[in-house]
């Protein structure tokens, strides 16, 4: 099945590549392509993204939120700096709308009380533990394509996924109109990636430092500091 799909995809790509010089497409048609960025229309562009729940971050992003139907890469080295709390508002909103959220191979147990506190509907949360790289990619692709899945969060395992696979996930996310969040170590920042958005996350004191590495249709290179929840970093008089 996969090889057949792959074949079809390649065929389409080669057809596109072959057709373009032969019969020039009308300009309007070309401009509607999502991968062509027109600076002049930047101001008029509708806010198509799904809000992150952080105003400062929304303002930085070209679509005023997480890009729809695309992969967003989050480069994180250390757990616990608030990387999940960056996604929890979005997960809460999507699950309340009745769409599914899928976690593929989460590193630890997603703790139900914390998720409920954040507003996530637990009955819409699915945790999948596929074995091996192939099943993992298959799961991600199928879930993204299905259209039932509002957001899929995957963690890069030991093997580094090939560029081709990342591209396929990106296409699957577009097909199913779902958000794909991919956690990767920051060492992969140097390698190119087809993701629509790449953020580098780092802990900075008691704040989360976000560095925008790349975004489609928008500027990159900005940095922003997001504060963590006040009740977490409140300092009590230590007993010991």
């Amino acid at each position: 099945m996969n090889s057949a799909e792959n074949f079809m995809q390649n065929k389409q790509l080669s057809k596109q590549a072959g057709n373009e010089p032969a019969q020039p497409q009308p300009l309007q048609q070309l401009l509607t392509r999502p991968d062509i960025w027109q600076l002049a229309t930047q101001q008029r562009r509708p806010r198509t993204g799904i809000t992150t729940g952080y105003r400062g971050l929304d303002a930085l992003l070209a679509s005023r939120g997480w890009p729809r139907g695309a992969t967003s890469e989050l480069l994180v080295d250390k757990a616990g700096i608030g990387e999940m709390s960056l996604l929890l508002p979005t997960l809460a909103e999507l699950t309340q709308q009745g769409r599914m959220a899928v976690l593929v191979n989460p590193p630890h147990i997603p703790y139900a009380p914390a998720l409920v506190q954040a507003g996530v509907q637990l009955e819409k949360l699915l945790i999948v533990h596929p074995r091996g790289q192939r099943d993992q990619l298959w799961t991600a692709e199928q879930s993204l394509q299905s259209g039932a899945c509002g957001a899929l969060i995957s963690w890069q395992g030991k093997e580094i996924p090939a560029d081709k696979d990342l591209r396929r996930l990106q296409l699957a996310a577009r097909e199913g109109d779902s958000l794909h969040f991919h956690f990767r170590p920051s060492s992969s920042a140097a390698t190119p990636s087809p993701a629509a958005l790449r953020l580098h996350l780092q802990g900075d004191g008691e704040q989360l430092a976000v560095h925008l590495l790349k975004q489609l249709n928008g500027k990159s290179g900005q940095r922003i500091h997001l504060a963590r929840r006040a009740d977490l970093i409140r300092r009590d008089q230590p007993l010991h």
Partner: peptide, 22 residues
């Protein structure tokens, strides 16, 4: 979503899928 769950279950096995509750 039911269809997706069935599909995942068919390939990955019953035990690979779970949810969480309080």
């Amino acid at each position: 979503s039911y269809q997706l769950i069935d599909k995942l279950k068919a390939r990955l096995g019953h035990e690979a899928l779970s949810g969480v509750t309080l």
